[in-house]
Design a protein around this nucleic acid. Structure first.
Length: 267
DNA sequence: ATGGTAGCGCTGCTA
């Protein structure tokens, strides 16, 4: 089972790139974030043509999450348990059962600046996600929580810790929130495959040519539960997909897709 | 260098 996550930064602008990537990476499940599409505009037919069923949760312009699966999609749930769909202003959580695994596509709020109300809301959102998981499932079940966490778990996950002093994504409170998922029973599947390799990034600022200067952060993660953690056979951050198509008029997302291969038989 | 680029959508916000 190959599971991937990719913050596509507008699925409308990126659809050709996503289709191209799906054709060669052939993930069984692809979680997407920042689709920036209302549900009515979601290109479900494009995914169907590639053999994927989709579930999506967006209201346009900002945010928006989706899951594409070629091993089935059932029990799609947009938003946290108990949330009224009509009350959701920012579409950041979608879960579904795919090939026997409970998969969640999450887009954690950015936080903007430390101490701002947006930062506090980021921490609250992370706590709500943790509570939602604890109430809805158990780490003894097969679970994969995938997405843009907007957290670099350790200093070695950023290009220069000094450059992020006082900034979001690296604060003790954000990292504690990330560790709370691990304490509950989830494992950072990518880090498990690369326990000793530093400076592996999944996001680079568009500005100042950061990608080509290797100035990035690892903030996109695939967290897997106990039945899956022991069988992670491969992991990759596909930097090729962060590059353009070769035409100046077709820029890539600012994130690269992250994928992991799991020992898991679709029932 | 408190800069820089991208998306949405048409003004400035979000990242």
């Amino acid at each position: 089972m190959r599971i991937a996550t990719w913050n596509v930064n507008s699925l409308k602008a990126r659809l050709a790139k996503v289709e191209e990537w799906i054709r060669y990476a052939r993930p069984d499940v692809l979680c997407m974030q920042e689709t920036k599409l209302a549900d009515a505009a979601f290109p479900a037919m494009a995914f169907a043509a590639l053999g994927y069923e989709t579930a999506y949760h967006g209201n346009g312009r900002w945010n928006g999450v989706a899951i594409a699966s070629r091993v089935g999609i059932a029990e799609a749930r947009p938003g946290f348990a108990g949330e009224e769909l009509a009350d959701i202003e920012e579409c950041r959580f979608l879960s579904a059962r795919c090939g026997g695994i409970l998969v969640a596509s999450v887009y954690v709020p950015n936080g903007r600046s430390v101490g701002s109300e947006h930062y506090e809301q980021k921490l609250e959102w992370l706590d709500r996600l943790r509570r939602d998981l604890a109430e809805q499932c158990s780490p003894d079940e097969p679970i994969a929580v995938c997405g843009d966490f907007n957290i670099a778990p350790e200093d070695r996950d950023v290009y220069d810790p000094a450059a992020f002093a006082g900034a979001t994504h690296v604060t003790p409170a954000e990292r504690a929130a990330f560790q709370a998922f691990e304490q509950w029973g989830l494992t950072d599947a990518f880090r498990q495959v690369y326990p000793d390799t530093d400076r592996l990034f999944s996001w680079w600022d568009y500005r100042a040519g950061d990608f080509h200067k290797h100035r990035g952060m690892r903030i996109d993660h695939i967290l897997v539960s106990k039945p899956l953690a022991g069988g992670v056979t491969y992991a990759l951050i596909d930097r090729e997909a962060r590059k353009g198509l070769g035409k100046g008029d077709n820029p890539p997302s600012d994130h690269a897709p992250v994928l992991v291969d799991l020992d898991w038989s679709v029932g």
